[in-house]
Design a protein around this nucleic acid. Structure first.
Lengths: 128, 128
DNA sequence: CTAAAGTTTGACATTGATGTCAATGTCAAG
DNA sequence: CTTGACATTGACATCAATGTCAAACTTTAG
């Protein structure tokens, strides 16, 4: 498929797909015309990238995270001490983010339930 | 306390404290000299703001979230339908972020444990 | 008193993630 | 063949969050 369809399916702007590629988060085959061509898996990948970006993970880290997911399943983790330390630090940062977000989530839920319009909670979830 | 101490205790740059104030996330009393003066509670508030910013919550939303936490404890939630809908939408976004981050967290933990340097996980947590 | 450190406001720079626009190329349908 | 939709690259604009610097004032330490 071409970039337009990919973008539509992943729910992002085509512009972003090119940007992600430029950041090394994505590799695209090229058709004879020069058009980028994508597989179904790429839709998933782009969705995940977009989600991580929205969650405040910098693209640099997204790159290594995605790489880790695909490579570390099988191979011996080539993990020099310094890299592992960096990952540990990022882990702490991510856990902090989760804590902040969880608290905010609870706050919103709280207000929504109190406001007697609790229906909106499930409504919103269903809208996905 | 003055801005320097506040910033140090909250772990951010003084510049950011002024920025947050400018964005309406913070109100600061002024001493006779014109210096901003803060209370212990402000340390907590600034920490939370910084965390939410890092987690990708836009300052606009942070403002209403913090307001909600302080006001909605007691008062009748003044929540017109449209506002509630907006909050429900934000809630979904936040839940998405949590899901993304949780997955990334698991990935990192996975790699760290496999890499036989699992010690870094608790090490990192202790470093807080 | 004086020097150093902290604070004030304000302006300007930067970085990351996107939007937008322009000029050109490609393809499918009429 | 022409038109319209979609692609390409590249440049420029924007927005939020920060960094940085300057000029002036205050406070603290010596």
């Amino acid at each position: 498929m071409k970039i337009g369809e990919l973008a539509r399916r992943a729910g992002v702007a085509p512009r972003l797909v090119r940007y992600y590629e430029q950041q090394g988060l994505l590799v695209a085959d090229r058709a004879a015309n020069g058009y980028r061509t994508y597989s179904d898996d790429d839709v998933e990948r782009v969705s995940r990238v977009a989600g991580m970006v929205r969650a405040g993970i910098p693209t640099r880290l997204i790159k290594v995270l995605l790489d880790m997911e695909t490579t570390s399943r099988s191979e011996a983790p080539t993990c020099p001490r310094t890299v592992a330390e960096m990952l540990a630090a990022e882990l702490v940062g991510i856990e902090d983010k989760i804590a902040c977000l969880s608290r905010s989530r609870d706050t919103i839920r709280d207000v929504l339930t109190r406001t007697e319009q609790a229906a909106l909670i499930s409504e919103g979830a269903a809208a996905r």
